[in-house]
Design a protein around this nucleic acid. Structure first.
Lengths: 383, 383
DNA sequence: AATCAAACTTTACGCGGGTAAACAATAAAT
DNA sequence: ATTTATTGTTTACCCGCGTAAAGTTTGATT
């Protein structure tokens, strides 16, 4: 009817309570509930912090402090609590914890499309960082749907998060809804900036990256045509397009945009159809195509292959194709895709740290700061 | 100082309360809180169900019933409640709601790897169905890590879900941990079956599908070699391998397995390296390769392209390659990948419905039922 | 050993809603 | 119009923890 003797005081305290006070009623309930684990019927199940307080010999308010921040209690108390935690498996009820707290330890993470490996990957990184910082990540995807995006904001509000990391959909987002949200909840935007919303923005330097790619392509062959969707889904695409135009002009070439129709998030399909259309109608003035992003390029390459075009930068090739983003699949295209890498890791780390910093230093609203990371040129087979 | 006159009784009740009872103190607070929305300063913010009860003229317990299940209150009450909901924006506090309820409306969804578009896509479907059924989906990914998978089970336990839909990691999962979880929480497994764990299993008929593919390949050309990982990550792979062997023998061919080393979830990379290894060492007795799944095939095709091999089913090709799963990217490989489609939609729908049925009909434990969906052969370019 | 701030314990109350029990009002059925 | 089964309302208590206030212990400081 008891366990080790390592900490006699604890056991005494425990026996006192289990037989004293009003725990007898509780004992009755326990016998009715015949679900006792087969872990050796010694230590009974702890139901709440009250009981854990008695068996651990620590007062409930102190335990409350401990669970909120283990560092906030004296070391001797901490070790007693942790010793007790090893004997009795108890975890505070998260609903009760969060109900009466104005800020939870939840951090929302929202991306436009979880089925896009690019976002899945960045979300994965952020999630790990958030968890490492002692917060509970809550992952949400908007599935390319602005209504869902707004719905997710409601969902996030409902869980009273300490902060939110968010990559907005972009053009089709409702900026006012997001702005209103960001005014209530500490919010860091990443990947995709909308006006000056949010306490910080962390992203990729599309201008630097596009310039680098244009320079490379012009230096090593014919100047590129820019291949994109007619109505791009986000500001990054616009920035890439504009930078392309500027760089081309600076280099003395005439910018040439090829814009294909298409809505939604099935970029590969759009790139595929666009390639066919462009080739069949001979709309390419040069043999080099710079796609606005890798997913378009993946579709483009697939269509080019199907049409019997040889893509690559070696002699005898019909076409050079480049992308942008270093999408996880860009290394498996045929040929492998020359592209610009976004620094996933740095973007994830910086945005997560920015948010946590924002939360923990209760400084009101500092100057909104924008961090951009350079891309790296990945010279692979396609250009 | 008021709104429409559609339901005079409600307005009266509201005025009564806002000026009577103890709401004056609340009014004081409201004036202090200078954050009133600019929606026309009429209807004050509703803080809790008590207040909403007074302004809507419905008792709090009835409201509680309504929010749990709108269909459980009389139609006249429902419309009064919904009318009030349009005027006052009030949503019950989810923490308070769930604290004292034995079962929440949360449904956990866990997949082995969210950055795999296959799982992202199926999770997306399930999520929509769960939400459509009136539950709150909670999406979790294990990131290929069994420790994370178990951690996720803890996370799920903490939110007291009504049920869980789970695709286990497979071989590296801890079956006992999952079994213990499934005994406490209604759990439906999909994609990947582990023993007889869970109240139901919904998946793909790997035997039927593999047989179909083998038949096709043998009928249209040389018999296939089976290309897989030496230590496959889940039972599906074993079933595919075994079926391959059986079918080959039934057709009078000698099964030939090519097993490549590799751990983790970077299947494309493993397929890529495996292809190079296999070709360089001339390990293929025939010109046809059946890959255990599409991701391996994607890597395989990429390597084959790089090595100058012509893949396809037309004359003059060096190799035929087939996959399995109809991965979202399989239509953009070069050539497009001949594969077997899993019926994403049906698997998602059936598993979600099974779980919700299980939850809502409080029948104890019926017979565990297993549902398998046939695959479809997608004849594309690679074989 | 005296002093004092930090950390702890006690006590008490609040959060927002679940839920049971007893009673009242409906609505349908006789 | 009377009886019944539903559905609502009142009242009351509970859940499990946050948190403030006041008193007590601890442990380091002088």
């Amino acid at each position: 009817m008891q366990g080790s003797t390592q900490a006699a005081g604890i056991i005494v305290a425990r026996q006192l309570t289990l037989q004293g006070k009003g725990v007898c009623s509780d004992g009755d309930k326990a016998t009715k509930r015949n679900k006792r684990k087969k872990t050796g019927l010694a230590d009974p199940k702890i139901k709440n912090m009250e009981q854990f307080a008695t068996v651990s010999g620590i007062s409930r308010p102190t335990l409350s402090k401990y669970f909120n921040d283990p560092g906030s209690v004296r070391k001797s108390s901490r070790s007693r609590i942790e010793a007790a935690l090893e004997r009795y498996d108890y975890r505070p009820n998260i609903y009760a914890m969060n109900q009466n707290r104005r800020l939870t330890k939840n951090i929302g993470i929202m991306v436009p499309y979880l089925a896009d490996p690019f976002f899945a990957e960045i979300a994965r990184n952020i999630e790990a960082l958030v968890r490492g910082g002692g917060y509970r990540p809550v992952l949400l995807g908007a599935h390319g749907d602005p209504a869902q995006e707004i719905g997710n904001l409601e969902t996030l509000r409902a869980i009273k998060p300490a902060g939110v990391l968010m990559a907005p959909l972009g053009r089709i987002s409702d900026p006012e809804a997001i702005r209103a949200f960001a005014e209530d909840v500490p919010t860091v935007l990443f990947d995709n900036q909308i006006a000056d919303i949010g306490a910080a923005y962390v992203g990729h330097d599309n201008a630097q990256a596009t310039k680098m790619m244009c320079d490379y392509l012009c230096r090593t062959g014919e100047p590129p045509v820019f291949f994109e969707m007619r109505t791009p889904s986000n500001p990054n695409a616009f920035r890439r397009r504009n930078t392309y135009c500027e760089v081309m002009e600076a280099l003395g070439h005439k910018p040439h945009l090829v814009q294909v129709d298409g809505e939604g998030w099935d970029f590969e399909s759009i790139g595929f159809r666009g390639c066919k259309y462009v080739i069949e109608n001979e709309l390419l003035p040069t043999n080099t195509v710079l796609c606005s992003n890798d997913r378009l390029a993946i579709g483009f390459l697939s269509a080019a292959y199907e049409m019997g075009l040889r893509v690559g930068n070696s002699r005898g090739c019909d076409l050079r194709v480049a992308g942008h983003d270093n999408h996880p699949y860009s290394r498996y295209t045929c040929p492998t895709l020359t592209t610009i890498s976004q620094d996933y890791g740095a973007i994830a780390r910086t945005s997560a740290e920015a948010l946590i910093g924002l939360i923990e230093s209760d400084s009101p609203n500092e100057a909104r700061n924008v961090t951009l990371f350079d891309g790296n040129l990945l010279m692979r087979g396609s250009a």
